[in-house]
Simulated scan of single mutants.
Amino acid sequence: MESLLWAMTRASGHVRPASRLGLVAVLGFLLPVVAFRGLLVPLVGAVSNLATIVLGLGALTAIFQWGWASGLLGVGEGAPISCLVPVMIVGVMFGLSMDYQVFLVSRMREEWTRGRDNAWSIRVGVAETAKVIGTAATIMLCVFSSFGFSGQRIVSCIGVGPALAVVVDAFVVRLVLVPALLRMIGDRVWAYPRWADRVTPRLAVEGPSDRPREVEARPADVLVGAARSGGVGASEPGRR
C-alpha cells in the first residue's frame, strides 16, 4: 500500500513538495477508509502520519542544518541538507507509520465488529499489538542509529531523522495518542455513512468480511456440551 502511494506521488513531478506531501496524506486517508469503513479512524491516522514526518524533518533540520548536535556525530558544523534526504525520510516514515497504524487499527476493528464495544476494542487492540509494534520499532531504531554514526553526512542524515521519528511514532503516537483519541471520540469513531457504505467496495483487512459470522461447533465442543448435560460420563461410578 505504502509503495503504491509513494510511487503515485513521485509520478506527479510537476507538483510542489508541500503539495506532494499533502497528496500522500490524502491517498493515505482514502485507502484506509475503504479498508476500515470509517472516516474518523483514517483521518486520525493521516494526521498522525503527517505529524511523525514533520517531527523527523524538524529533528533533521535542528541537528544537521542548525548544527545543534552535528559535532557529536562527527559530520562537521551545521550546513544545508541535501534535497535527497527529505524525500527518502518522507517515504520511509510514511511506510512505517502506515504499517503500525494498520497493525493497531485492524485488531481494534476486528473486536469492534464482534462486540460493538469501543473501549474494549481499543483495549484489546493495544494489548495484542503493542509487543509487535514495539519490537519492530526497536529493530528499526537500531538499524537507523547505526547509520547515524557512520561519519558520512548524507548517510548520517538518513539514519538520525528516521531513528528519532520511529521511536516517537511507535511508542508515543501509535500506542498512546491514537488510542486516547479514539477512546475520547467514542463509538462515533467507527461510524460510516450509509451512502458511502453502498458505493465502497469490500476490502476488510482483518478477514473476508467485516461482519461477525456464526462459528460452527467443533467435535470437541460437542463432547464438552454432552459431558455437561450428562450424555458423556453418565455411566461413571458415583455420577448420575
Rank of each mutant, 00 (worst) to 15 (best):
T9S: 15
S12C: 13
S12G: 10
H14V: 06
H14T: 10
V15H: 01
V15T: 08
V15Y: 11
V15S: 05
P17L: 00
A18N: 05
A18W: 11
A18E: 08
L21Y: 10
L23D: 02
V24D: 06
A25G: 15
V26F: 13
L27Y: 14
G28C: 04
G28H: 08
F29Q: 02
F29V: 02
P32G: 05
V33E: 06
V34G: 06
V34Q: 12
V34K: 11
A35Q: 12
R37E: 11
R37W: 02
L39M: 12
L39H: 06
L40N: 04
L40I: 12
L40Y: 13
L40A: 13
P42F: 02
P42G: 06
G45Y: 01
A46I: 01
V47G: 03
V47L: 15
S48V: 09
S48A: 15
S48P: 00
S48C: 13
N49T: 11
A51F: 07
I53L: 09
I53P: 08
I53H: 07
V54Y: 10
L55Q: 10
G56I: 03
G58D: 02
G58Y: 13
A59C: 14
A59Q: 10
T61E: 12
F64C: 04
Q65Y: 09
W66T: 09
W66D: 15
W66E: 15
G67M: 01
W68D: 06
A69C: 03
A69G: 07
S70T: 08
S70G: 07
S70L: 02
G71K: 15
L72S: 15
L72H: 15
G74V: 07
G74R: 10
G74M: 06
G76F: 09
G78P: 01
A79G: 04
S82P: 00
S82Q: 11
C83K: 14
L84P: 00
V85C: 04
P86V: 01
P86H: 05
M88S: 11
M88E: 08
I89P: 00
V90F: 04
V90R: 00
G91R: 06
M93H: 08
M93R: 07
F94T: 07
G95E: 00
M98C: 07
M98Q: 13
M98R: 11
D99H: 13
V102T: 14
F103Y: 14
L104W: 02
L104K: 05
V105I: 13
S106Y: 01
R107K: 14
M108W: 05
R109G: 08
R109L: 06
